[in-house]
Design a protein around this nucleic acid. Structure first.
Lengths: 126, 126
DNA sequence: CTACTATATGAATATATGATCATATATTAA
DNA sequence: TTAATATATGATCATATATTCATATAGTAG
């Protein structure tokens, strides 16, 4: 039997059929994947977390993360493209803010899930 | 002034200071970033979503995603390493299941946030 | 034991991603 | 107007990631 395709059969056709109905379709997976990708970079994640509490300008964020403003600007563009942040101009300064209102909730769940210190203050216990 | 460092000052020292206290520290960002990275690949995301409803073996998942079992196996290893899935052996077959109990909740929030069709059935309206 | 099947895994390769650098734009000050 | 500042952006490069292929392992059947 020189079948050059995968030799495995579908072990459980019913399970696959159920999954096809219930699970995420490729298009939705793509969209949600893009959102998670935005949160996958530690720098972007810190930016989003910082913006949970207050709006900040590019300089502030660069100082917070300890990276160049150019790098922050590139990250912000990605987040802007995805609709996760928006900005407001005051003179020369652009203030960035979060757009979604449930990011904090989501981050709290994620932190709980992966055991990271979730909210502020938790970080440094005596 | 030939200062070769960044020419911008911290525009708002108070904001940066507040962010330093409240926002995610680099270590936590790394850990959470790894989790989000696991969810950032559409294939892995579909795997995780499928496992929300039932345990499935590698063959089933490969059939669902339409990719090779090798590819699925590699993805599952990543998810296993992060503690997001675990398996149980029954004969030759390895059944994978989710480990965290709040992934469904998190995915629902994420779906709501990015406008993707969240739960099953939503996908195909007439 | 051998043969077969389901899965795992290492290496290689192709693509994606993030940082840097140089440059462009927008706003303000002079 | 020119100069200066804050930010944006395109190109480039180094690294990371995902898939493929070949091979290894573990269980089962004979």
């Amino acid at each position: 039997m020189n079948n050059d395709r995968c030799t495995c059969r579908i072990v459980h056709e019913d399970k696959v059929a159920l999954a096809r109905r219930l699970a995420l379709d490729p298009a939705a997976a793509q969209v949600m994947g893009n959102f998670f990708k935005a949160c996958a970079d530690p720098g972007r994640l810190r930016i989003l977390h910082a913006l949970l509490h207050q709006e900040m300008c590019v300089c502030d964020l660069a100082a917070l993360l300890g990276v160049s403003e150019s790098a922050v600007s590139h990250q912000l563009r990605l987040l802007r493209t995805l609709g996760l942040v928006a900005n407001r101009r005051d003179g020369v300064v652009l203030y960035y803010r979060l757009v979604p209102d449930n990011l904090g909730q989501l981050f709290a769940l994620a932190a709980e899930l992966c055991g990271a210190a979730a909210e502020a203050g938790e970080a440094a216990l005596p």
